[in-house]
């Protein structure tokens, strides 16, 4: 006997993500998700953001990695309350799930948080389809990865709200520039919002922090 079942496979994750997003908005917390390949500079960006933000204790981070507390330790050293999720204990090693974020949220003091970052497992494929409750999603691509990465991993560009080109100080050594990466990103999404930055030199950090502050000042959360 055939039974008609019209069900989105990720509906369960999506509804948990929506509940996370509502809980965060109710607490007045803006949530920004970070996606990238391993080593694009997500944690370093957050360390630099803590310095630029003013009061790091008003930030919070939920960070996913297969193993270790290394990233959460680095961020706590910067004064950012941070929760580490080791995905090897959550049944899906290559990405965070909305449920794992719900568990982590319960360990944070949302009333004293203005801005929460969710740093996903380094991977440009698997995390893309799993919404976590972020108000905005940012993809980081470092110049050292090569200019063709946006067209090779187009969904990571399509399903995010801002593309951050990182490590721009390395551009002269790797023959990839902010311009060539911008071109590649716009091949996928012509209207993509793009910022370039280097945490090493500080170039572009002001624009990144303004992007966050404008979002925070707006009606998102």
């Amino acid at each position: 006997m055939r039974i008609d079942l019209s069900r989105d496979v990720l509906a369960g994750n999506d509804s948990t993500a929506e509940a996370n997003q509502r809980a965060l908005a109710d607490a007045g917390v803006l949530c920004v998700g970070l996606l990238s390949s391993p080593g694009a500079g997500k944690t370093t960006l957050l360390e630099a953001t803590a310095d630029a933000w003013g009061d790091a204790s008003r930030l919070a981070v939920i960070v996913g990695d297969v193993a270790t507390e290394a990233d959460a330790d680095r961020l706590r050293d910067k004064g950012i309350p941070s929760i580490q999720i080791n995905t090897q204990h959550h049944g899906a090693t290559c990405h965070l799930t909305a449920e794992s974020v719900t568990v982590a949220l319960a360990q944070l003091d949302l009333d004293s948080t203005d801005l929460l970052f969710v740093e996903n497992v380094g991977n440009l494929v698997c995390p893309v389809g799993f919404r976590l409750g972020e108000h905005r999603r940012v993809v980081l691509i470092s110049v050292a990865e090569g200019a063709d990465k946006p067209i090779k991993y187009p969904k990571a560009i399509l399903e995010t709200d801002l593309a951050l080109v990182t490590k721009t100080d390395l551009a002269p050594y790797v023959d990839v520039s902010l311009e060539s990466l911008t071109h590649s990103i716009r091949q996928v999404k012509p209207n993509a919002e793009i910022l370039g930055l280097s945490t090493k030199t500080g170039d572009g950090m002001a624009e990144w922090v303004s992007w966050l502050r404008e979002l925070k000042a707006g009606s998102v959360a």
Binding site: G12, T97, F130
Partner: peptide
């Protein structure tokens, strides 16, 4: 290889859909 977690969710989606119908 996120297909394993997708497969688990697919199974959950089928099970909950059938539970709702009492099958």
């Amino acid at each position: 290889m996120h297909e394993y977690s997708i497969a688990c969710r697919l199974i959950e989606a089928v099970e909950s859909g059938l539970d709702e119908r009492g099958v």
